[in-house]
Design a protein around this nucleic acid. Structure first.
Lengths: 119, 119
DNA sequence: CATATCACTTGCTTATTGCAAGTGATAAAA
DNA sequence: TTTTATCACTTGCAATAAGCAAGTGATATG
């Protein structure tokens, strides 16, 4: 399910940019990926990020990220079962994208900086 | 207006990724940047892209891209005045971002390809 | 027994998107 | 001269998504 061609993949066009934006093109999804690349794994950790994502949107995005193959769920305790989110290879491979975006952003939003090290 | 710190720049947080997504985080904006990097300049050229952007959204995004300093308007005829859109340095400097995104996308959306050469 | 934590879900209001049609300036064709 | 066409949009409206506050169920802790 992680790396197959489906109808979804070519929703709008055969352009890799368009395909990527079909899955990542909003104000929140890449921030969750950023957090995952920074080592965050749990719901509360994502919620604690300074952008203050709403709980319903976080839940929705995690669901979509999982069904798009960017993350998988991994239980870290029983009673009750609680899961953390782990990047797949598809998700991990976004690191260079975030890196160049950070490089660009630090130039054009002077004073901005990443919490920890995506870079 | 192109490279100043404003309130807008830190809408959600001081993270360069969040700042970038405040201006670029949707399904259409980066596709217009892609087209501009590919050499497209005019309204009708953007409309002709395979993703079929709606006219109201294109007009809205071009307006926002201009006020965010990614593009500027340049008249190419009088009677009636018609303008084309030219990337600023801020816009041009997104090329590496698009390049790594394309590299990533060609792996994870096999069969996808860019119309011309962003890469 | 009361309070707290975690990972959500639900309800509701507001904002954004997508689609079709229309507009105004001008040129070219019938 | 009336019609048709092009270009760069704008307008209206229905559908979808976002944002906010509150609630839920399982469990642990005081």
């Amino acid at each position: 399910m992680t790396n197959n061609i489906t109808r979804q993949d070519f929703e709008r066009s055969f352009c890799p940019v368009a395909c990527a934006l079909d899955e990542l093109g909003d104000k929140w999804t890449l921030l969750i990926i950023r957090d995952l690349l920074l080592g965050k794994k749990r719901y509360q950790e994502f919620l604690a990020s300074p952008e203050r994502i709403a709980t319903n949107i976080l839940a929705d995005r995690l669901k979509k990220l999982e069904s798009a193959g960017f993350v998988r769920q991994q239980p870290y305790q029983q009673k009750p079962v609680r899961c953390q989110y782990i990047l797949t290879q598809k998700g991990k491979d976004l690191r260079p994208v975030l890196q160049v975006l950070v490089t660009w952003g630090k130039i054009y939003y002077p004073g901005s900086r990443v919490l920890d090290a995506v870079e």
